[in-house]
Design a protein around this nucleic acid. Sequence first.
DNA 1: CGAAAAAGAACGAACATTCCTTTTTTAAGA
DNA 2: TCTTAAAAAAGGAATGTTCGTTCTTTTTCG
Lengths: 204, 204
Amino acid sequence: MARMPKEHLEARRRQILDAARHCFIRNGFHATSMQDVLTEAELSAGAVYRYFKSKDDIIAATAAEALAEVASAFEADDGARPPDLDNIVDLVLGVERPPLSGSQESAQLLVQVWSEALRSPSLCTKLREVMAEARGVVGGLVARHQQRGLLPADVPAEHVADVLMALVDGFLVRRAVYGHADSAAFRNGMRALMSAPAQATRQR
Amino acid sequence: MARMPKEHLEARRRQILDAARHCFIRNGFHATSMQDVLTEAELSAGAVYRYFKSKDDIIAATAAEALAEVASAFEADDGARPPDLDNIVDLVLGVERPPLSGSQESAQLLVQVWSEALRSPSLCTKLREVMAEARGVVGGLVARHQQRGLLPADVPAEHVADVLMALVDGFLVRRAVYGHADSAAFRNGMRALMSAPAQATRQR
DNA sequence: CGAAAAAGAACGAACATTCCTTTTTTAAGA
DNA sequence: TCTTAAAAAAGGAATGTTCGTTCTTTTTCG
């Protein structure tokens, strides 16, 4: 019998997923053809279809990895001492840190995942799960800030968490479209907003 | 000679674009087939191809309208008395106001436009132009706040504008994916963040 | 040697688009 | 006002291509 080392199976999957990721980032999920993926992976159709049963299967796996990247980026901050909130973008998208450090490419893929989630119920579910978990993590971070009097306590932590997560999403959009998306300037802007004199945010 | 009323030409274009918009929101630009659009518009291929020379043409027109919607949503705030910054999301995405009031559908289409811009250089250019203009408008709004002492003046207005626009983008993502995206809760979260005690945003 | 892996030709379905036909509409002529 | 001819619009079958996938063959390797 000739069974190949089990690690080679995983290596091939990796090779295919990496190639597909490249193609998807370059051209989107549905404007990318299987031939594009085959060429990029330098494999034949017969080879690829041994490891994935369909194109949708490859899309799902690629999207799942992108979401896992996001999830781990948020999880990494859990349990750590609460950092400054205006640094959250850096914390989640930080340049040197492993998660989401792929920079523009990861951001671009994530935008495609969002748009694919609009038409794929299963992906939408997964996306919501990841967002819900992240909301919990960030919400906990906010709550700790509130307990220390660093944030007003009369607003649900989840509401503040939603704003912070929207900031991250918005930053990702800019990074995906523009490429550069200066995180230092972004942090400056956040700091300015958060240090606004109290009268600027009057109740109504 | 038999020339039809010129208004009917525009009405047909509208009919086709409306149908296409529906399809694109439901299934994305590239997973939507021409047959889908023809069926939704209740027209034949021959009819549609009299008004648009290709599918890409329809995609471009749809995306252009989506971007125009965004542009007008930002422009509407220009010149007006400076509103509270924590209301910017409401101002731009307000429920009763004409622009972007399509709510979830507009948000979903915009996410698709973002992802299409990643593979279409011309759409990318247009998107950047719209964002640049909006940045100018919001930047001016921030500058006026700075002059009144409502915001720290030692940070470039554009940096603060970037943060505010990222907030809007992030809110759109949540509205597209979740549907509801409670803007009142969002505004509460923003207000909490902006009324953070000064020591929460220490320099480093 | 024999089984697993890869190759690549082959396949039917679906695609965007075109082309020819039919219907509708308008404007002029009787 | 009614008819008619020409032109525009719409219909829908046809076309050639490209797609995702399968199937058969060849290669590789334990």
